[in-house]
Design a protein around this nucleic acid. Structure first.
Length: 479
RNA sequence: GGCGACGUAGCCAAGCGGUCUAAGGCGGGGGAUUGCAAAUCCCUUAUUCCCGGGUUCAAAUCCCGGCGUCGCCUCCA
């Protein structure tokens, strides 16, 4: 398995520190607002990566944190007139609600900063004792010039960093690049904890060092997050952690490409965010997952409804045809299960894995799924179709995608999408079914004009009626 | 200004020195099927990979220069 490591920038063979075990820490959220599609751009690829590593037989420990104390949370609390604690728990709950639609794996640990203050204080003590940090008026700063490898992850030289560095008023840094490990309490309404340096709270960065090392050890395999975290967040984490332990910290650094909207990065500061409820009004979660995962995880993604619709179309065609052909061939779950160890299935799976092993090349892996399906249809063979379904079932087990057909998961993408459209357009599913029946009757009476009227009507709610040997099929349709 | 990434068909997007007369998806064109049908099926749609040099027996893939786009350098997935 090969991985492109941001640290050093090269493709490397993935060799876990402990045989067959993988520790992975993904930077989660600062919980001061609802998540948006940009977060999904990171969480979805990491979900696929974690699932895939499990599928490949690694015993994976997956950690994703909540940063629940921070400047932004405090200012949000002031805005909303509630406590910072309430802000954090509110957005953690909303996060869980939003993310639930996507069937992502729940991390083995979801640590919160406020539950780990003692660990953070211990870590800061070590850093100070090792001579990498200093105390000024209750603040503790990490002294960047004392850490010689600073800048190695982001590839920025400290001289160039100095050019853009700022010192906020009231900060007493020895060097503009120094960053806070601990912040002294300044305002009454600010949550704080007792520490050897006085009342205060952790700075940003230190929490991830403390929590990742607590759950995964002082050295672990993978640390990931969005590209924007490379500097300063991850750079600082490396400095702190190594300063504290003298050990290497994370071995592989993985970063997901950003999502842009009309050529601009989507971010809260630009105000061009699309949140999950907005997204789900228009698209099925599987479409969102597929659409975000069909780009390589490191690539930037230009998000637009148009791009999304293309991917939606691809999935509709794929799932509809698959369901229809399976029905026609009268395939059973049992038959699919029996093909599990078939040599052709293994062959397909090997090809799939060889793409995924190459730095998680999901676009190529997905293209294999489509081309394999095309071959099956060309062969016109029931056995080939069973093999393909068996292959697909394994893919679903591996990465949680492509499994929304009844024979594989008891779920039907097509049916779910039809129902979703009913909701979107405010028509009940029952009514749609009644209209379909009515049209069948009209067709039997050869009243084609009236029958076509019904088809037209349903087309307005995004449902196309396709007449087949099994009667009229409802297919989601968008122009 | 510094650092990084990228520029492949009408659009999206793989490709990491030969198997590339370039995967896959969407779209387009022609035909089959159909009461009709945008679904399905069959055929078709880049001799070419931003531009100009170079390295090599061999380059979309490596190097140099140019043009363009995006990201980071401040909070950010």
């Amino acid at each position: 398995m090969k991985i492109k490591n941001t640290y050093g920038g090269s493709y490397q063979d993935f060799i876990p520190l402990r045989k067959d075990e993988v520790g992975i820490y993904v930077c989660g959220l600062t919980v001061y607002d609802r998540i948006h599609i940009g977060h999904l751009r990171s969480f979805i690829p990491f979900d696929i990566i974690v699932r895939y590593m499990k599928f490949r037989g690694f015993k994976v420990t997956f950690v994703r944190n909540f940063t629940d104390i921070d400047d932004k949370i405090i200012s949000r609390a002031r805005e909303e007139g509630i406590s910072p604690y309430d802000v954090a728990s509110k957005y953690i709950n909303l996060f869980r609600e939003d993310i639930a639609h996507f069937e992502l794996l729940t991390p083995d640990f979801e640590p919160k900063v406020t539950d780990h203050i003692a660990d953070i204080i211990e870590l800061i003590k070590k850093i100070i004792n090792n001579g990498y940090a200093y105390v000024v008026d209750g603040d503790v700063y990490f002294h960047v010039p004392s850490f010689k490898d600073y800048g190695k992850l982001s590839g920025i030289s400290t001289e160039n960093m100095l050019a853009g560095a700022r010192v906020e008023p009231g900060e007493n840094k020895k060097n503009p690049l120094d960053f806070a490990l601990w912040k002294a309490k300044k305002y009454e309404d600010e949550p704080s904890w007792k520490s050897p340096w006085g009342e205060g709270r952790p700075g940003w960065h230190i929490e991830c060092s403390a929590m990742s090392m607590k759950y995964l050890g002082e050295e672990f395999d993978i640390h990931g997050g969005g590209q924007d975290l490379i500097f300063p967040h991850h750079e600082n984490e490396i400095a702190q952690s190594r300063a504290a332990t003298g050990k290497g910290f994370a071995k592989y650094w993985l970063h997901t490409g950003h999502l842009t909207l009309k050529g601009e990065k989507m971010s809260k500061s630009l105000g061009n965010v699309i949140d999950v409820p907005q997204l789900l009004k228009k698209f099925h979660p599987e479409v969102i997952k597929f659409s975000l995962a069909k780009y390589h995880y490191r690539s930037p993604v230009e998000f637009s409804d148009d791009n999304m619709k293309k991917d939606e179309k691809a999935l509709i065609n794929f799932y509809y045809t698959l369901e229809f052909e399976s029905e026609k061939a009268k395939i059973t779950e049992d038959q699919i299960e029996k093909m599990r160890d078939d040599s052709r299935v293994k062959e397909l799976l090997n090809s799939f894995c060889s793409f995924m092993d190459d730095d998680f090349n999901s676009p190529s892996a997905f293209s294999l799924v489509f081309s394999a399906f095309e071959e099956v249809r060309k062969s016109n063979s029931k056995d080939e179709l069973i093999r393909f379904l068996s292959f697909l079932k394994r893919i679903y087990e591996a990465i949680g995608l492509f499994g929304k057909v009844p024979l594989i998961s008891q779920k039907s993408f097509i049916e779910e999408e039809v129902i979703r459209r009913c909701k979107e357009y405010g028509i009940s599913y029952d009514e749609v079914c009644k209209l379909v029946e009515k049209r069948e009757e009209l067709r039997r009476q050869k009243k084609f004009q009236e029958a076509d009227e019904i088809r037209k009507k349903l087309l307005n709610v995004g449902i196309y009626l396709q007449d087949t040997i099994f009667g009229a099929k409802k297919i989601p349709y968008s122009e």
